[in-house]
Amino acid sequence: MATATFRIWRGDQQGGEFAQYQTEIDEGMVVLDAVLKIQAEQASDLAVRWNCKAGKCGSCSAEVNGNPRLMCMTRLNDIPLQEPVTIEPMQSFPPLKDLVTDVSWNFQAKKKIKPFKPRAPEPDGTWRMDQRDVDRVQEFRKCIECFLCQDVCHVLRDHQLHEEFIGPRLLVYSAALEMHPLDSEDRLDDLANAKGIGYCNITKCCTKACPEHITITDNAIIPLKERAVDRFYDPVRRLFRVLAGG
């Protein structure tokens, strides 16, 4: 069995430092396996979040050698092991302990987005929907709320504009609501103003980071931006689009 070295950030709100651990590794192991092995054998109080171990719950987000990753979906085969592997918590959120960060802001900001409001159902009390319309929104609803996109977005990470900008995850959420075939709520004013969609300058870092391969920028943010722009600056084009069914 081979061994590998891991540099894991240990600390809390007050600060911290990297601690180095060596552990044996087995065929097919992922980064989370190594972290849990270190926890079980060497550092029982090493804090880390995880649940599904299969990329489905979005709990185990961290930065592995500087890359935003789900630890449970990052195979050790795919990273060079001659050098120590560096594992740090997400940087856009305040650290709580070791690899665990305070992501509560995401939950609070979500609550402020106007909820789903369906149009009236058909006489039988249900709705008919076309699979094609559903497909478009299903892409967004794949989101596992890992918040890795929030982690890499420079507006949050470098400029810390959490008060002004809801970030890519919540723009995806908004897009899912706005494009929902049944939704009848209007969120465009809010997105343009309180939610700060204008801060996004389409760097696409979020799309690259998304483990669910959601095309965040092209499919969610840009169409929302277009809708907002149409509404506020170009009523004629907007009217035309509505008439053309676009």
Binding site: R49, N51, C52, C57, S59, V103, F107, E145
Partner: peptide
Amino acid sequence: KSLLGKAHTVM
């Protein structure tokens, strides 16, 4: 025990 939305049901 976990964050909201991470319970087993998600799997």
